[in-house]
Every structure is written in structure tokens, then in C-alpha cells.
Design a protein around this nucleic acid. Structure first.
Length: 749
DNA sequence: TAGGCTCAG
DNA sequence: TCTTCTGAGCCTA
């Protein structure tokens, strides 16, 4: 009996996964920016390296990661475009991602140019609602290509996969129509197979896998390294073990493998070879780190390093500004070249920084959407911190050769809090008790997520976590977890005075480096309280609300009441996604271009909150502007319009209990006081804090309004898809609304 | 948990 | 010369 075959049958074919891989992405973006480049051999260059090229160039032998000189030798008329500025690619990547969210919330980015989509719920929806869809044949290539039908598997997956191919075709059509982008698609019952089968026919084609042919398909890959998840190191180790092909790995003696690699790793490797992959599509959120780096010839002068960091910091801030969150850690990255050993290696140092280095500007007319900028004088302060980190890596008394300089921000605060914000106001002026409240804002309402729960780990992940340390399979593809950023507490995150970060401040005297809580006795007490606060903020509010300049005793920390004011949808309420980007559901207009492409059902689209007011790109109406034109992203697109319309008169929709004292005009200054907030307390706050509170309040109203719409939609039965079998981060929605600044200022009853 | 390492696109 | 730039996760101390 074929042991491997038996095992493979244990993985059901119930899911429908689509993998999308943009064709020669950077080069395609450049072609869109300059259409005259089409049909000419084009390569995108970073430093002295061709990072990608179009098919015209490939036909002449140019390949990825080839040296520029070699590429020019092979192709004398090669057009080289500098691609060191990733902004255009990042933008297009985001537009693609936004468009895909219209189909399902379960979209996982893999780099800039690849995406996984779990369309199981959408397939189910179409099966239920469109009987004729069940009879439509699949679109595109089928593996195997010998005429085998999808129905070769009788488990019922054939119909789902056929619908999956039609969805994939729609998505690809729409990507091309709206953004001018072509891509490949793979359709299968898991991520691994979808990704691999999609590359079977390139470019601009799609392939579906007949489920029962998974093992044969994997065998035909032959080369171990072509299996996603088996990298260079793993391949080398397998070769040392006498395993050189996928087929050998499928059939290898598991006892031998387990002895050599350990149980978990051996099992994992075999599963890969068999095409088994239980990992779910994890909705991609905001990044956990934002980094920039610049490789350079050699830097050995201190001032050159400073200049480099200044330039990098500027670039980094451009991205942080767009992101809207404030980082509270910075990392310096260097690649040092050892001229004697002729080798280089990377070293990093990081330090925590205070949020007061940043300021946020609330965009007029928008709900809590901010741009993050450096506060006045913060550039120099940050540079000072950076240079001190640099000096911890490089001994300036000795000669040095730096060949790469990088900066990274991390530990982002989930909420937008700037120098003019309530949190920083409290840090600067209030006592520790008040700080603990601001900390609560960032942490305690974050429910324990499945991310941190060992019991919630998938079998795969758990397996890898317990893998022997002697062997590290190249399983990023599988290890990759939700990229939703975890909110970082501003103060005393680890709840312990023995925080490792203490040492990191020892070198810094600047107040912008986060101070150590170690010396504060009262801080220790509050740290101990924090866990209780997290469990039940309302019950312990009295403990915290000691006298302060802000009359904290007048404030209320009661999430339940707040939720009463702004009822959440069942979906939103049931999720614990404080770590995920909030997504506002919107109503699909009856006659969008999307529906004209195919009259069949679509998923009710979702949007990230930030996209609501910025880069909603995917539904611009024809005639289509240039895909590279950012004005395409105007929020007044057909899809977005209903949500905005609901949001605008929000008070009348959401404010069921507390009567608002505020006007509905655009100017924040015209607003007397947010509903339910003690007017006297409110008036005592600085103007900028009042504005921020109002923005926060309005944000709550928008969410409440969106939820009201959603509930109406749900009750009509048209949005059942979202509650179906879709996995991962779907329904990330409610975190922000539960964790708004505003709610902490609601008046005591 | 900082820092090193590996891996993916 | 494993080259560029970005982001993520795991391991160790």
C-alpha cells in the first residue's frame, strides 16, 4: 500500500484557494508608467542588479538577479529603469490588494506581487444562489493536461473548483481592466498547491488542479527547491540525507527521516512533498515593521553615515506618514565588511523611542485619519539616537567599512497617537496613575488573540515550534503568520520591572527614548494591576482613577456602556481582532462595473478603515484613468459611496441613547462636545485634545453606522458568506471601535 | 526580548 | 562576489 497516498487522503478538499502571481511585477508597473516601454526589452535595476525584467528581455537571456553588465551584454538594446524607489510598486501592490478585498476578506499578501485568497465562502455562496453556475465548465488550464476532468475527484470539490476558476478569471479580468495588470492564477484546495499549480502556465494564464492528482503533480516538480517551503538550506540537508527529488521525499523511510530531522520536521517535509498544507489564508494587516535600507559601495566616514541616515529617515517617515501609526522602537541596521576576512555580516541595534517624537495631523473632514510626522525638532533628536545606536555597532576609534545602512521602525501603536494626543499629554503632565489609563487604551482592550495562544496554533505551526533546533526547514511559507500588527503598549508592556529594555536606554539621555519604569515603586504597583485591568477594566477603574490634573475620577472606563451606545454587529462583536486592521463593510451598489463583468454573485466588499478615506482604488468607473495615477483612488468611487453616505449623518444613525450636543457640520471647532462626555471635563482639555476626542468619537459613529448597515444587510440574508467557513482574520472589524479614545471619556452615570 | 539568522518575493 | 530591498518568524542568550 502507498503509505503516502493514504495520508494524503486525510486532507479534505473543502477549501477553494486562489493564488495570484503578478507577471514580472516591477517591470509591468514600469510599463504602465511608461507605455512606450511595452514590446521593448525592459529590466528594472537596483544598484548593479537586475531585479526583474519583462518577457521581451527574458527572450534574450536576461534573468532576475543578473548583473547589469551581463544583462546589457546579452541584450544590447535593453532598457534599464531604476527601481530603487519602491513606492510605485508598493502603491500598485496596495491597489491590487484593495481590489481583491472586494471578493473576500481572506486575502494574504506574499511580497508585493503575490496574494492568496480563500474564496471558499464565495464559492459556497454562488453554489447556493446560482444553480446555473453549477453547470458551467472550468476556465483555464487543468492539471493534468491529459483530458482528465475535475470530476475525477468525486468528493464534490470539482464543482467548487470550477466555480473557483471562474472567480479567478473574473479577478484577473478586473485586475487588467482597472489596473492594467496581468497575472497568473492557480486554483486548488490548499495554498501550497494553488501557488505551485499557478506557475504551470505563465504569463497571464491560470491553472486548476484536479484534487486527486496532488501527489503526481508534486512528483513532477522533481527539484526539491521548487517546493515552496524547501529552501536552499533544507535542500542541502536533504541531499546529505540522500533525498534529492520530491518523489524520494514522498517515499522516504519515515523512521530514518525522524531520526535525522526529528519527528515534527520529518513529518512536515513529507507533507510538503505530498502537497499537503493545512495552513489557512491569513488576512494581511498592517506591517509589523517598516524598514528602508540602502546598499552602498563603502562608507568609512562618520559624516557620510550621518547623511545616509538622514536620507533614510526621510524615506522612512514618508512611509510612516502614510501608515498612520506611531512607532515606538527604532532599529539601526549595518552591513559591515571585514576587509581582512573578505566577508561581510549584518549587525543591528535598536532602542525604544517616545511617541512624543511624532505628531499627527487630523485631516479635515475625515474621521480620525491622520498623517504622522516628526514633531518639531524631532529629526535631530532621532538622528542623535540613531547615531548612538550606530556607535554601539561601530567602534569609531577604528577604521570601518559599511556596505549597507538601514533603518526600521517597529512596535507600532495601534491607535494614532501624536504629540498633540491625549496619550502624550498624559505622559508629559500627569502622574503614573493616569499613564496606566493611557496604557490601557493601547493594551487592555486587546483581547487575547489566537495568535498568542498555543492552543490555537495550527498543527503545522505547533510542529515547527517544537522542531529540533538542529534543523531549520525553510518553511517561511508555512510559518508565515498573520501579518496583522500587534498593538504595543506604550508603557510597561511586559508587565515586569525586569524589562530587558532597561539596558537599552542606558546609553541615552534624551527624553525621547522611552524611560525605564524600573525606579518607580508606584509604577510597579500599577504594573501588577494592569493584568487585572485587562480582565475587567470597568471593575478596576476606581483603583486607577486617582486624582489627577485631568480629573480622571470623572471619567468612565466602561466598555459595556460604550457598546450599548454604539451596538456592534454580531460579527464584529464576536471577533477579537484588536490586532487587525479594522474593516468597514460597505454595500455593493447594484450596477457596478464588477457586476457587469459577470452577473454572478460577489462577496460583499470590505474595506480597511484607512482605505475608506485614502486609497480606495479598485472600483473607479470607466473610462479608466492611468492605473498609476493615484487619483484613481479617490474615495468617491461607486463602491465607497454608500458607506460614506452612511457615515456622514452618523449621529442620527448611531446615537440611539445619548443625545448629541454636537452639530453635524464639518468643522470640528463647531462641535460643542461629543455625546455622553462630561462637558466640563471636555472643556478643560486643550483644544487639540478636544479635536482628537471628537475625531475619535466620529470614528466610533462611522463604525456604528457601518454596523447598522451591516446588520440590515445581514438580516436580509445577503451577507451570509462572511459567517461561513472563511478562516483567518476575517471580521477583524471591531477593534478600533472598541478601543477608541472617546469611550474613556464618557460621563459617569 | 534584542540581536542573529534564515527565508520568501 | 548570491547581487537589491523589504518583511516575517524562529532561536538563543
Amino acid at each position: 500500500m502507498d503509505f503516502a497516498s493514504v495520508l494524503n487522503k486525510s486532507e479534505p478538499h473543502q477549501r477553494t484557494i486562489i493564488h495570484l502571481d503578478m507577471d514580472y511585477f516591477y517591470a509591468q508597473v514600469e510599463e504602465l508608467r511608461d507605455p512606450t516601454l511595452r514590446n521593448r526589452p525592459l529590466a528594472v535595476q537596483q544598484k548593479n542588479c537586475v531585479v526583474t525584467c519583462n518577457y521581451v528581455a527574458r527572450a534574450k537571456g536576461v534573468t532576475k538577479l543578473m548583473g547589469v553588465t551581463e544583462a546589457q551584454r546579452l541584450c544590447s538594446d535593453l532598457v534599464l529603469v531604476n527601481g530603487e524607489d519602491l513606492a510605485p510598486y508598493r502603491l500598485m501592490s496596495q491597489k491590487i490588494f484593495d481590489l481583491l478585498l472586494n471578493y473576500t476578506p481572506d486575502v494574504e499578501k506574499l511580497g508585493f506581487d503575490e496574494n492568496f485568497m480563500d474564496v471558499t465562502a464565495l464559492v459556497d455562496l454562488r453554489q447556493a444562489h446560482a444553480a446555473e453556475a453549477q453547470r458551467k465548465p472550468p476556465i483555464g488550464h487543468i492539471y493534468p493536461a491529459d483530458g482528465t476532468a475535475l470530476t475525477a475527484c468525486s468528493c464534490g470539490c470539482a464543482q467548487r473548483l470550477a466555480i473557483g476558476t471562474r472567480i479567478a478569471q473574473e479577478i484577473r479580468d478586473e485586475l487588467h481592466l482597472r489596473l492594467g495588470i496581468t497575472c497568473c492564477a492557480g486554483i486548488a484546495y490548499n495554498k501550497l498547491l494553488a501557488k505551485l499549480v499557478g506557475s504551470r502556465h505563465k504569463p497571464n494564464q491560470q491553472t486548476v488542479l484536479v484534487s486527486t492528482y496532488a501527489e503526481q503533480f508534486m512528483r513532477e516538480l522533481n527539484d526539491l527547491h521548487s517546493v515552496t517551503g524547501i529552501g536552499q538550506k533544507t535542500q542541502t540537508l536533504l541531499l546529505e540525507a540522500g533525498v534529492s527529488t520530491v518523489e524520494q521525499l514522498q517515499q522516504c523511510d519515515m523512521e530514518f527521516m525522524r531520526k535525522k530531522f526529528g519527528f515534527e520536521t520529518a513529518t512536515k517535509l513529507r507533507d510538503l512533498a505530498l502537497g499537503r498544507d493545512g495552513s489557512s489564508v491569513r488576512a494581511t494587516g498592517k506591517p509589523k515593521t517598516i524598514s528602508v535600507e540602502d546598499a552602498c559601495k563603502t562608507i568609512s566616514v562618520h559624516t557620510d553615515v550621518t547623511d545616509k541616515f538622514r536620507m533614510l529617515l526621510k524615506r522612512l517617515m514618508e512611509q510612516v506618514a502614510e501608515d498612520g501609526r506611531i512607532p515606538i522602537a527604532i532599529k539601526v541596521v549595518l552591513r559591515k565588511f571585514d576587509s581582512q576576512k573578505k566577508t561581510s555580516h549584518r549587525e543591528t541595534k535598536q532602542a525604544n523611542i517616545l511617541p512624543s517624537l511624532f505628531k499627527t495631523s487630523v485631516c479635515p473632514g475625515e474621521t480620525g485619519v491622520c498623517k504622522v510626522q516628526l514633531a518639531d525638532g524631532a529629526l535631530d533628536k532621532l538622528l542623535k539616537i540613531i547615531m548612538r545606536l550606530f556607535e554601539r555597532i561601530v567602534d569609531l576609534k577604528k577604521p570601518f567599512n559599511i556596505t549597507l545602512v538601514g533603518l526600521a521602525f517597529s512596535k507600532f501603536q495601534e491607535r494614532k497617537v501624536g504629540s498633540s494626543s491625549i496619550a502624550n499629554f498624559l505622559i508629559k503632565k500627569a502622574d503614573l496613575e493616569v499613564q496606566s489609563i493611557t496604557s490601557l487604551t493601547n493594551t487592555s482592550l486587546t483581547s487575547p488573540t489566537s495568535e498568542s495562544s498555543p492552543t490555537a496554533m495550527s498543527g503545522d505551526e505547533a510542529a515547527f515550534r517544537s522542531s529540533p533546533t538542529t534543523f531549520k526547514p525553510s518553511d517561511q511559507f508555512y510559518r508565515r503568520r498573520a501579518t496583522t500588527a500587534s498593538p504595543v503598549p506604550m508603557l510597561w508592556d511586559n508587565g515586569s520591572e525586569s524589562a530587558a529594555t532597561n539596558s537599552d536606554f542606558s546609553d541615552f539621555s534624551e527624553t525621547e527614548v522611552e524611560p525605564s519604569p524600573k525606579k518607580s515603586r508606584i509604577g510597579r504597583v500599577l504594573v501588577n494591576k494592569r493584568s487585572r485591568l485587562a480582565v475587567d477594566a470597568a471593575d478596576t477603574a476606581a483603583d486607577v482613577a486617582s486624582p489627577s490634573k485631568l480629573r480622571v475620577c470623572d471619567l468612565r472606563l466602561n466598555s459595556r456602556d460604550s457598546e450599548k451606545d454604539f451596538p456592534m454587529s454580531p460579527i464584529a462583536a464576536s471577533t477579537s481582532g484588536a490586532a487587525a486592521a479594522p474593516r468597514f463593510r460597505t454595500i455593493q451598489p447594484p450596477n457596478t462595473l464588477l457586476n457587469r463583468i459577470d452577473g454572478s454573485l460577489r462577496f460583499i466588499p470590505t474595506r480597511t478603515a484607512s482605505r475608506m478615506s485614502s486609497n480606495a482604488s479598485s472600483t473607479a468607473s470607466s473610462p479608466l484613468p492611468s492605473p498609476m495615477d493615484d487619483t484613481v483612488s479617490a474615495p468617491s468611487t461607486p463602491t465607497m459611496a454608500p458607506a460614506l453616505q452612511v457615515a456622514a449623518p452618523a449621529p442620527s444613525v448611531a446615537d440611539s441613547g445619548a443625545t448629541t450636543e454636537a452639530a453635524t457640520g464639518d468643522s470640528l471647532a463647531n462641535l460643542a462636545c461629543p455625546a455622553g462626555v462630561d462637558a466640563q471635563v471636555f472643556k478643560e482639555l486643550p483644544v487639540e485634545l478636544q479635536n482628537e476626542l471628537i475625531a475619535s468619537w466620529r470614528s466610533s459613529l462611522v463604525v456604528a453606522a457601518a454596523n447598522a448597515v451591516e446588520q440590515a444587510t445581514t438580516s436580509s440574508g445577503s451577507s451570509s458568506a462572511n459567517t461561513g467557513s472563511s478562516s483567518g482574520g476575517s471580521g477583524a472589524g471591531s477593534s478600533t471601535q472598541k478601543n477608541t479614545l472617546y469611550r474613556y471619556f464618557l460621563r459617569n452615570k
